[in-house]
Design a protein around this nucleic acid. Structure first.
Lengths: 335, 335
DNA sequence: GTTATCGATGATTTCGATTACATCAGAGCG
DNA sequence: CGCTCTGATGTAATCGAAATCATCGATAAC
């Protein structure tokens, strides 16, 4: 592949001029520029990325780590990230951590090696290898979190009000007349689950129904929905409504309901979380909390670009709007 | 961030020795190695990636372009790619082309700039910007296709036998006694759809049922499933079975069936394609063709690594096994 | 008419690592 | 005892582009 030297030689100019044609064309006179461009087209020249990157100390890449790319919620967020990044001239390095710390650290090392200008992590844990960087550079560290806000995290983030959203779900169910409610959470290590659980508990207390709550811990997968919701349904004093912390688990719960010969929403109301594309196409259409997934993606990129450009000097925690979408899977309990 | 010079100075050795500690430790005597490593740990040194890449002309990155990352089929394939790549010491640069040629070309330019050692594309179109590279380097071009095999493509690929799989689906339906069958394809520009359609047509001809086929062209989305299947259901002489070229469209078709007060499989049998995670959790559980998505991901990476290592000298087109998974959504037609 | 200014371009250093080649001390050998 | 060989390490060229500084001719200002 042709180098800048080849182009310079063939066009009868210096490498500096060729470089300027690309990065500061207004400094080059039109005739020279055209002569250079003609040679560029003819040789199929593209500036070598590594050389450029070494000189400028920039990669124009954003590393995005995600606990599970095959989860439709995350893949929608990533779509938003990719879109906003590309629009700003950045490309996306993807890391699927599979919820494994070792992989998180592996990607953190990549970031330290400067393989990317910034890091967006959609998990809940800041890799150890980056702790010193955050400690020394503070709010100017080009690291942003998506979805999993935690006060002590010391990086900017974009997310919804998980606690408030979960409380709204409970208000909706209590409003319909449900008293015994089952909840299938995700792993409580992550704020995404613990915040929602707080919202659930405070709403229950407000209604004096805390003792009628049944909490079961899932892992956001369909299978865990089947299992955990199944256990709740098999208890004495079966809940009349189940709230799952993800649509996928709700999908599993729906299956558990059907398997027991029960019907949703006649026997059991069901609420999910996220509003992935499939939620509105289930039978019954699923009541859920809609998260602005692509917008979260846009927003984390915006936060990161602010840091990279030196605009941001303080931490920002952006709360984006969510919406309780009431569909056919919730109804008053049977009398 | 510390450079190799800083480490060399602090450890009282040359930069060559520091470099060797990382890339050829057996050449460095143990005591020296430990002294260097101590300094490395203390300074938190990581080799700068751009410098290394410039010198070695390798990036240890694979660029993967995909028509739609939020499609669960593709996100599973990507998962497989990411896994195999990481195991081989490569990381994944993700490009979501959104079915737009302009974005495909944009990512092709990235590849030309050597931002990645290899390219895996899951769409059906080889970007124009890469045609000359394929033409001049032939089978040694580090470009591989996934899923969309087409004889003239001139790059290696991994995929299933789409034509055979579609024919099997039709045999299954004819075997159950269906005569009037509706088919919802994807865009026919891609081999993935046109090959399946060939399979459908040849099976129909074998059974003398070609004239009873109804073909409708969708775009793989849920919404197009609702729409195209809906149109088929509204025709005179309603089909007793519908075969959709993706599970998502089948999900839409299921909705169209229900909206008309019909029942699956009693009134209409339904078959999807891909066997995404959701397929077995729908009601009724969906009959579909299972594709080994993660394995396709592994395989395209293997093909690419073969090229990068110089092992591969001829094109390889790998056909991976698929499987017709018969579940509850198909049954004999009502009499 | 001389000098400051400016626009276009060239020469050269620089980014941080890798690596071919050079060096040097000590072991082994005749 | 001197020579070669080998293992450990140092020296310096190199990768390809960007950016600083230098140059040079032309124009404008006084």
């Amino acid at each position: 592949m042709a180098t800048i030297q080849d182009v310079a030689r063939a066009a009868g100019v210096s490498t500096a001029t060729v470089s300027r044609v690309f990065s500061a064309p207004e400094l080059v006179i039109e005739t020279t520029r055209q002569r250079v461009m003609a040679v560029v087209a003819q040789l199929g020249y593209e500036p070598n990325f590594a050389a450029k990157s070494l000189r400028t100390l920039r990669t124009e890449k954003i590393l995005v780590t995600v606990p599970d790319i095959s989860n439709p919620f995350f893949s929608q967020v990533i779509r938003g990230v990719e879109e906003a990044a590309l629009a700003a001239g950045y490309s996306v390095l993807l890391g699927d951590t599979r919820h494994e710390e070792a992989r998180e650290e592996q990607y953190a090392a990549m970031f330290r090696r400067k393989e990317a200008d910034g890091l967006i992590f959609l998990g809940h844990r800041l890799p150890e290898a980056l702790a010193d960087m955050v400690a020394s550079k503070g709010a100017r560290t080009p690291i942003v979190n998506g979805c999993e806000f935690r006060p002590g995290l010391a990086v900017s983030s974009a997310h919804i009000d998980n606690e408030g959203a979960a409380a709204e779900v409970m208000e909706h169910l209590y409003g319909l007349g449900h008293a015994r409610i089952g909840v299938v959470t995700g792993p409580l290590a992550s704020p995404i689950s613990s915040d929602r659980l707080s919202g659930v508990l405070s709403a229950a207390q407000r209604h004096g129904r805390a003792s009628a709550l049944r909490i079961s811990i899932g892992d956001f997968s369909i299978e865990s929905g089947v299992r955990q919701a199944g256990e709740l349904l098999d208890e004495l004093g079966r809940p009349t409504a189940i709230f799952c912390f993800s649509d996928e688990m709700a999908m599993g719960a729906l299956e558990a309901i059907r398997r027991r010969g029960l019907s949703c929403p006649k026997d059991v109301s069901l609420v999910g979380f996220d509003d992935i594309r499939f939620a509105r196409h289930l039978d019954p259409q699923l009541t859920t909390v809609s998260q602005p997934m692509e917008e979260i993606g846009h927003e984390v990129v915006r936060l990161l670009l602010d840091i990279l450009s030196g605009r941001a000097t303080t931490l920002q925690n952006v709360t984006l709007p969510h919406e309780l979408v009431v569909r056919a899977s919730t109804a008053p309990p049977a009398v």
